[in-house]
Design a protein around this nucleic acid. Structure first.
Lengths: 237, 237
DNA sequence: CACCGCCATTTGTATGATAATTGACGACGC
DNA sequence: GCGTCGTCAATTATCATACAAATGGCGGTG
């Protein structure tokens, strides 16, 4: 029985059940114990189980039909960009595969987001980006604080695009990155190269230079990806 | 009382409430009637309301705390790529803004997905892509059937990448495109240009030509975007 | 052997009650 | 007068129970 404290009971059950599903304990198509069984498994009432199940249904993980039971949906129907789902996946082991796929995705849209921010971002958006960069460059802060600033820097770029989809995508990425940084041993202070690239990106966006910001972001992602992979590889063996 | 038939009661309430939120009837931060009020508004029991609320919670639309009530979260925390959420947004009016942002995102991902499919896709993946293209090219079928094949063609490309995030993205896009096609008056038979571009993409992927497939997909998206915009503009005035 | 109808199982919905959380207000002491 | 503390009330969270609806299987019957 997971007696992890904090948070609502329903949330804990949701996380437990969701975690087991993403861990492959219950595989797509069919399965999942009946609600009554889940009650005894988790030691909670049917109401609570049901609400957890509904939350997972809302994320596209499962689907229920009377008499036939509640079955796990194929992974293609899961909302892989859901922040909670991502966090469950990464807490059950940050594999190189997840990280690689994540950077693949980031490489698709972050450079473009830079270009959009440079062209379409308003002055207030750009000031935000700059502000977060300044925190990032402040060497007197703790690593943790600078990691937070790093995330906010990237989120501010998304916000500047004004594209709801990209903004939402940013939130998901935020969760993933935060975990990948934290779990992969809070990599040593950001390299000089990454530091410098952040600066280049920031300035390019402020000046409205779309292509330059795009290029710099591509390079940053390449460098960052390598760093995360190294940190990950150094942990597992 | 929305007496729309079909589907479970809980699903209807979820769609109604979710629809009202995305329509801006309840704005972010604060508000939302108490559960008891929602019961009388929708004419259902508290159990049902609660399960609908939990589903929306799972999508990141709302958050509840005892005594403080249930409040709408800022749009940045919504899972914009959730298929249901997208469908609610588009059913309440497919604005040019949504379509534009959607194509912006597609332009980020789909060309890259083509390149990945060309390089990393296995033989069976590629056969699938080809099969859907052949349906698409069959002029003897109904428009509806070919629209379906069009969607499947794009989904097959995502599937061939093997990247879970991209595959999930495809599902969301699928919903959006289906609606945008349907609502925007099922545009006249796909233009010759689009037809030809699908063929170019298909062949380039089968041959493993990453850059070529990427280029063709970019052109297809450009053409398709214009077509949808035209269809949309012709409907509203 | 084939067809029909009843029964058991499982999710869906309803109802009522109790716990837990937290904001608001008022009483008390300094 | 002012601050601190306790009580109250409102609202979600959780529990227990019951009934409805759907569906697959089982057994009865011709």
């Amino acid at each position: 029985m997971p007696e992890r404290s904090g948070g609502r009971l329903c949330s804990r059950v949701t996380a437990e059940l969701g975690g087991r599903i993403v861990a492959g304990e219950y595989v797509p198509d069919q399965v999942l114990p009946t609600e009554a069984d889940l009650c005894s498994i988790f030691g909670v009432s049917r109401t609570t189980v049901r609400e957890a199940v509904k939350r997972l249904h809302g994320k596209g993980l499962i689907e229920g039909e009377p008499r036939k039971g509640t079955r796990v949906l194929p992974t293609a129907r899961w909302n892989q960009f859901d922040a909670e789902l991502l966090s469950w996946r990464m807490q059950r082991g940050v594999t190189a595969e997840i990280v690689d796929q994540l950077y693949e995705v980031r490489d698709c849209f972050e450079p473009r987001a830079c270009a959009l921010a440079a062209v379409q971002g308003g002055p207030s958006d750009k000031v935000q980006i700059q502000a977060h960069f300044h925190v990032l460059a402040d060497t007197s802060l703790t690593t943790e604080q600078r990691v937070a600033a790093d995330l906010k820097f990237h989120l501010a770029i998304f916000a500047a695009t004004g594209n709801l989809f990209l903004i939402s995508l940013g939130s998901a990425i935020r969760t993933a990155l935060q975990l990948s940084f934290t779990l992969s041993q809070r990599r040593s202070p950001m390299s000089q190269t990454e530091q410098a690239l952040h600066g280049h990106i920031c300035r390019a966006i402020l000046r409205g230079e779309a292509e330059a910001s795009e290029r710099y972001m591509r390079r940053l992602l390449k460098v960052s990806h390598r760093a995360v992979r190294r940190a990950l590889a150094a942990r597992t063996p």
